[in-house]
Design a protein around this nucleic acid. Structure first.
Lengths: 323, 323
DNA sequence: TTGACAAATGTTAGCGCTACCATGATAGAC
DNA sequence: GTCTATCATGGTAGCGCTAACATTTGTCAA
């Protein structure tokens, strides 16, 4: 009846009826049943979000942006954790799609073939987050991990370091691209030494940063800079170097990735690549909501960029501040 | 028909029919519609989880435990973020309950009166997490923040510190109880000085730990130990003391709370109160799932305890290791 | 006043499943 | 062979809502 209309398209109901309905609803404490709504309308107000981790700071920040943007709207966020497994991601996409979501936000651009097919054929809107790349399924919000890591690598070289190493945990596709960026720049500068690249499939922690740094220094004791795949590792690297009496930035430069707030207050303050994680979540959700409201974005792919935050941990002697 | 039964109570369907149905389902790629199911059955397979923050490490760990435990079951986790606001929590509880969830996991024991009424009358199972207290709505998994903070305070005194301060951000109820524990112990020992208690409503960060420490040392320069409400603040305190040339543990003892993995590898390693966040999430979800399956726990309230991890940051001169 | 048209409201069917009850098949007791 | 108890399966209604269409009411020009 008119009540259903009043709830969904109030502009099509007279002010008088609207008021009457509002009163009765208040008195009865009526709340629409979303299941019945979904069944009758053939669609839901659910926006599925699939991320590889719920503990990792990076995704926690992104999620915060997503939830923040969804707040106050009628859209429901439904979170799925793929635990860095493409197969688990595939399962989640299948499950989510079977629930006729209004939209789906997925992480990255390296879906399995089956996942890609499902997403391409999906009858809902899709936003890919975390990184940019060619050929989005639908919309995309991220930045170039390759470029970010190149910039960080160039920063180390510009600061005067000549024997840089790279440490990384959890080799997900974005990590691999960052490693690639480091390799590129180091190779071009003629300072690439594969022996200074230390990686592990284990999940990244500060403790692991210490261990990887110890490994690196054991294999290549003359390493004079470490590009860390993220800030947890960078903090671990700093702690480990401190314990060994290696002075940063003089004897060893340390650069992190993501620029967690703590990096700026460590001793020394740690250089890191700032990424806009909260904004990424916000923008992704905003684009999704706009698209669902029929307001198409002028550009399907949004690159949020990054910034190398040069701090004391890479501020060496004379050639300190690279132009 | 029999198909519906085959999917939900396969033990009540003959092996022959089961096999036939399975084949057709595979061929058709049939997936049940959860909305129709919810509407017809009058209940859903959703377990709502309401936490005050999605970025905070502590809740990220708890969520990880919850998601992990839900994996592989048919239960769907639905996350809500109350942003430390009892009003927002009330709204979320109302929204969630209107969706006939199978269960609800809520944080803490300090719900608003209206929220408490809703939860007490709710026709679904409830698990309260994060802390223990009297009179649970239904089930409860946590630990005593008061006792944990008393233990940490006693540890500082036992280590020989006599002018301890306390820093805290975001005064949520659990923080308040920790402050209370510190006050109790300090008062009993005759070393309570309200001027050494620094708090702020701002969200806790490492940077804020630096600032609060600076405040504390400005107001009470002879402070010889800091009990920090969490590990972010503790790390900030450590960094700030380092910058001021204050030696920890000799000149100042630092103790954190939660025992994030990084505390053990800092320089010096930072004493902290270990809490079992992942287990809390796991146990809460396990209890919920068991209860929904009709397997009642023998005890409604589970206390996961805590442990003071004494490390170098409070290992002072002679009376280092308290018994 | 009347007709034409728009705005507001009402009617009906059915979304895909499950609860409940009815029926049919099977087996064992007598 | 009949009767009952048990298991397996089928039929029917309806969960609460919305889409689509039908009807009523209101408005204005001729």
């Amino acid at each position: 009846m008119t009540v259903s209309r009043a709830l969904r398209e109030p502009e099509r109901v007279s002010a008088k009826s609207l008021e009457k309905i509002r009163k009765v609803i208040d008195r009865l404490g009526y709340v629409p049943d979303p299941a019945a709504r979904a069944l009758a309308a053939g669609r839901t107000n659910v926006i599925g979000v699939i991320v590889p981790s719920v503990t990792n700071n990076v995704f926690a920040d992104v999620m915060s942006g997503i939830y923040g943007q969804a707040e106050g709207t009628d859209w429901q966020v439904q979170l799925g954790n793929s635990r860095y497994s493409p197969l688990e991601e595939e399962r989640l996409v299948r499950t989510f799609l079977s629930q006729r979501p209004a939209g789906l936000i997925v992480s990255g651009i390296d879906q399995s073939a089956a996942t890609a097919v499902m997403l391409r054929q999906a009858s809902c809107r899709i936003v890919q987050i975390m990184e940019t790349g060619p050929d989005p399924f639908d919309m995309m919000v991220g930045f170039s991990h390759l470029e970010a890591s190149r910039a960080a690598s160039r920063h180390l070289l510009a600061a005067g370091y000549r024997r840089p190493g790279f440490i990384a945990a959890r080799l997900d596709p974005r990590t691999q691209r960052r490693l690639e960026g480091f390799r590129d720049v180091a190779r071009e500068a003629g300072v690439l030494d594969p022996g200074r690249i230390i990686t592990t499939p284990r999940a990244s922690t500060v403790t692991l940063g210490c261990e990887l740094t110890a490994d690196l220094l054991a294999r290549a004791p003359d390493t004079d800079a470490i590009l860390c795949n993220n800030d947890d590792l960078a903090l671990g690297a700093l702690f480990e170097c401190q314990r060994r009496g290696l002075d940063s930035p003089r004897q060893i430069g340390i650069c992190g990735f993501n620029d967690l707030e703590m990096m700026a207050v460590a001793n020394p303050a740690v250089t890191s690549v700032r990424t806009y994680r909260l904004d990424m979540g916000r923008k992704a959700m905003a684009m999704m909501i706009d698209a669902l409201a029929g307001r198409e974005a002028e550009r399907r792919t949004v690159d949020l960029g990054f910034e190398v935050m040069a701090r004391d941990s890479t501020r060496r002697g004379g050639s300190a501040n690279p132009a």
